[in-house]
């Protein structure tokens, strides 16, 4: 499946079915993130249910602490 993550086309494995899976795939599941899915901002509680499909446009920002 091909999706656009942070402006880049990326090929992701079939077992990535939801936004939660996608965050695991990018090793961001332990981070605090904000996800925009096809121009809709997601509540954190929606990551589990939101399904990822071919051509989806996903933006991910994760929070860091250093300064």
């Amino acid at each position: 499946m091909n999706v656009i993550v942070n402006g880049e086309h990326v090929e992701i494995p079939k077992n990535v079915a939801t936004v939660s899976n996608l965050l695991q795939h990018f090793e961001l599941d332990q981070k605090v993130v904000i996800v925009e899915w096809n121009a809709t901002i997601l509540e954190k509680a929606d990551h589990q249910e939101t399904r990822v499909s071919d051509g989806d446009r996903i933006e991910i920002v994760h929070f860091v602490g250093g300064g």
């Binding site: 981070k31 605090v32 904000i34 954190k44 920002v61 994760h62 929070f63 860091v64 602490g65 250093g66 300064g67």
Partner: peptide, 28 residues
Amino acid sequence: ACVGSYGVTFTILPGETPCLACLLETVP
């Protein structure tokens, strides 16, 4: 904040924008 080659920023205006607690929900 920044780490490695990555950085993130947001301007918080009380009464207008969400606050950091709204954005984070849980503190990292």
